[in-house]
Design a protein around this nucleic acid. Structure first.
Length: 276
DNA sequence: AAGGTAACCTGACTGC
DNA sequence: TGCAGTCAGGTTACCT
């Protein structure tokens, strides 16, 4: 389910349910996710207060005194808030139980991850030096995500802009769907080399990325009030895409048929007339 | 250093 | 119906 907006919607949804709550029990049914779930997790997390929940890129971060739990939903992960008596389904790999309910991770493909990272008490900044977080680019809604930064970082490079967006170096949180959507809104051909995009066009791209992501968060946010009852699914395919998965259909702007290509083993959709 | 690609895994769908 | 093939929202690890 997850590009950045979906992860952010989950974060907002579970924060009022979990913040300041004590972990009563941790139940791991399947340790073999992207990386093995630490055998320490149950012991170190039980009895801890979740002080707050943050997000970096597509990672959800549960904070408590002795460390943090880093959760990534991979391609197919869903994190839900459920009543204690909810029957266990296939691929329900992990529960974190609280007094009033539980967080349950369901992930059929098991590309997701649940990692215990101890420490940070003395040095909160050390978390950002963790190998999985250290090389991440700027958050799309932060001040250091600018057209100038993208332009500067890409001089002389030849990688296609679509692949660069997915790479997480120019900006984090833009996944395969929203990369195509943002490039369409910015009028940029997804195959264009990053080094051959002007500062002015990076301005348009930065705006488009922020617009696409915040729109998606708003749509997911509309399901927030039902989060307690929902299965955790939100947003995503409820939003009408302008190009994604529309191969052969008319461009909504100029009626030219939308094209489908493959870049780096991922599908890309674009309008060959609107995007140059 | 940058760029390409194989790999991790299951489920849904398509076509024969 | 069944089976084989293809594709899916992500990211790391490894190769050239």
């Amino acid at each position: 389910m997850p590009e950045l907006p979906e992860v952010e919607v989950v974060r907002m949804g579970i924060t009022p349910l979990v913040q300041s709550q004590v972990v009563q029990r941790v139940l791991v049914r399947q340790r073999q996710l992207r990386w093995p779930v630490s055998r320490e997790l149950e012991r170190v997390l039980t009895g801890q207060v979740i002080t707050h929940i943050s997000r970096r890129s597509k990672y959800l971060i549960l904070h408590c005194d002795p460390g943090v739990v880093l959760i990534h939903l991979g391609m197919s992960g869903v994190l839900s808030w459920l009543p204690h008596d909810t029957p266990v389904r296939a691929h329900d790999h992990l529960d974190i139980q609280f007094a009033h309910g539980l967080l349950r991770l369901n992930d059929p493909r098991r590309f997701g991850a649940v990692l215990w990272i101890p420490g940070q008490r003395q040095d909160p900044a050390s978390l950002s030096r963790h190998p999985l977080l250290a090389k991440l680019g700027p958050e799309p809604f932060s001040d250091d995500f600018t057209a100038l930064a993208m332009w500067t970082a890409t001089r002389g490079r030849r990688v296609a802009i679509k692949q660069a967006l997915l790479g997480g170096e120019l900006v984090v949180g833009v996944g395969n769907i929203y990369a195509s959507e943002a490039l369409f809104q910015a009028g940029i051909d997804p195959r264009r080399a990053v080094g051959r995009i002007s500062r002015a066009r990076y301005e348009k791209l930065a705006e488009a990325i922020r617009r696409v992501l915040s729109n998606a968060i708003e749509h997911g946010g509309s399901t927030l009030r039902d989060f307690r009852a929902s299965d955790g699914q939100s947003g995503y395919f409820q939003i009408a895409h302008q190009v994604y998965d529309r191969a052969g259909l008319s461009c909504l702007v100029c009626s030219t048929p939308i094209r489908h290509i493959v870049q780096g083993q991922r599908s890309t959709y674009f309008c060959p007339n609107c995007q140059r």
